[in-house]
Amino acid sequence: MRVVVLGGAGAMGRVCVKDLVASDVGEVVVADRDGALAEEVARDVRALAARPGSTVTAHAVDVTGDSLVDLLSGADVVCNCVNYTLNPTVMRAAAKAGTNYLDLGGLFHGTRTQLALADEMTDAGILCLLGMGATPGTMNVMAALGAGELDEVGSIRLRCGGSDPEPAQAALPAPYAIDTILDEFTMPAMVLAGGELAEAPAASDDEEFSFPEPVGAGIALLTLHSELATMPLTFRRLGLAELDFKVAFDAGMIARYRLVTALGLADTAPVTLEDGTEVVPRSLIKALAGTQRFSGRDIESLVVELAGTKGSRALTVRVEELSYPNATYGVGGADANTGIPPSIAAQMMARGAIKGTGVKAPEEVVPPVEYAAELARRNISIEVHVTQPA
């Protein structure tokens, strides 16, 4: 089995690499635009190899260049962990190489662009699995797992939250990519209401939501996410009419990001200062905030709540996930929750447990029970609770 990880020296890519190497994958290729950093990651992870015959190699690659097709040729799967705006470019290279593909998501609009490439990927005879991290990814599979308990599904609520005992002490907390957070607070969210997709204000509809302990309660906000690009299509046959996605933050962080966006500091258009200097507000904010990460002791939780019927009975299904720190890989729950799933899915694709051609979403083709068992082996648990409303 040969798996190429693009962006393999990045935060999520290197977690994916570690899991592949530790999972007895015969050949893992760490590919990154920074060749020296890729070599460093490859050197560091070789000790995790499950058997002596496994190989870990490093390659410098520009995913927009012609060399990408050559790199992907002969691989079973490419795990694309680079910026989502490059997803279509990498998909087309994978098609030319005849290599199955997966990524970490396209932030709704990007995912819709990728869905439009279905015929092209089918003609190439490859499977492209869109959004196979935590959310999208595990969240989608959890929805499929919950839907399996019902004959009809009227509504689905998707929630993501976490807790960190040692949060970064910063004026503007950025526990993950600050660009992503700023997008979540500025780009209109999408919701499914009455069976129709509609825009909603960014970071709106505050809701106090209870995650399983030890994460507990958080304030969840509507944000733009890839699940809304695929799940209305997948679950339309079950009668899905209502769907939304919310991510939870603490009140202090919400207030600070709302102030930043209200002042226009999340904007990407240049602003001319009194002395004639041009400054991009978002670039300034990013420079001042610096690089921050979770502490490594953080725990992340995903929750999917489905309301529907089984026969003549109305039922509510709550699927809960908890991702704990992974000491073997040296990461906290959030990084494990996003970096491990692409490794699991790539291995399932390579051995034929995930089948198909064209462009697919996780809820369509990932076997939920087998996938959940693989997560459990890596300290990520999923539980399903079915109740009948009073």
Rank of each mutant, 00 (worst) to 15 (best):
V82E: 06
G264D: 03
A95C: 10
L158F: 13
E370H: 07
V29L: 02
H385Q: 11
N326A: 10
P270I: 04
L20S: 00
V82S: 12
R377L: 13
D66F: 05
G330K: 15
N80G: 01
Y324S: 12
R14N: 03
A266Y: 01
S301D: 07
L182G: 14
G146K: 09
T328K: 14
V384A: 03
G358E: 12
L86Q: 02
T309E: 15
D19G: 03
A327S: 15
C16A: 15
I344H: 00
F185A: 13
A174I: 15
D335Q: 13
I340V: 15
L288T: 09
D298C: 10
A116M: 07
M91N: 07
V77N: 02
D70K: 13
Y84M: 06
N83H: 10
A171L: 14
D103W: 08
V369K: 02
L48F: 00
P342W: 02
A144E: 03
A203P: 03
V61T: 04
A262S: 12
V28I: 10
D179L: 10
D103G: 12
A93F: 07
R282F: 07
D32E: 03
G131N: 01
A287P: 03
I340G: 08
G194I: 09
L221E: 01
M231W: 12
T186L: 13
A289T: 15
E27A: 02
K286Y: 06
D244C: 05
P212R: 00
K96P: 05
Q169I: 11
V331W: 14
L243V: 01
D66K: 10
L130K: 09
T291P: 05
D206E: 15
L197A: 04
A202K: 13
L243T: 01
T85P: 03
T57P: 10
L263P: 07
L265A: 00
A118Q: 01
V28G: 10
D32H: 00
Y101R: 02
Y257C: 07
I181W: 14
T57D: 13
G148R: 07
E166R: 15
G8L: 00
L150R: 09
A31C: 08
A200R: 03
G290L: 04
A248P: 11
E184D: 13
E40F: 10
M187C: 09
D123I: 07
C81S: 13
L182A: 15
V366G: 04
S226I: 06
R92T: 11
E207C: 13
M142V: 12
A220G: 11
A217Y: 04
I380D: 00
L117I: 12
V279F: 01
A170K: 14
G216E: 02
A31L: 05
S67H: 09
V25S: 03
G10A: 00
I382D: 01
E321A: 13
R297V: 05
M1E: 00
D62F: 02
L228P: 06
K96S: 14
L302S: 09
G332L: 14
A31W: 02
A42D: 08
A336Y: 11
A346E: 03
G296N: 06
G7P: 05
V29N: 03
I380N: 00
P362H: 00
S295E: 02
N326F: 06
G162S: 14
Y324D: 08
A168C: 09
C81W: 04
L172Y: 11
I285G: 07
P88S: 06
K355F: 01
E196R: 15
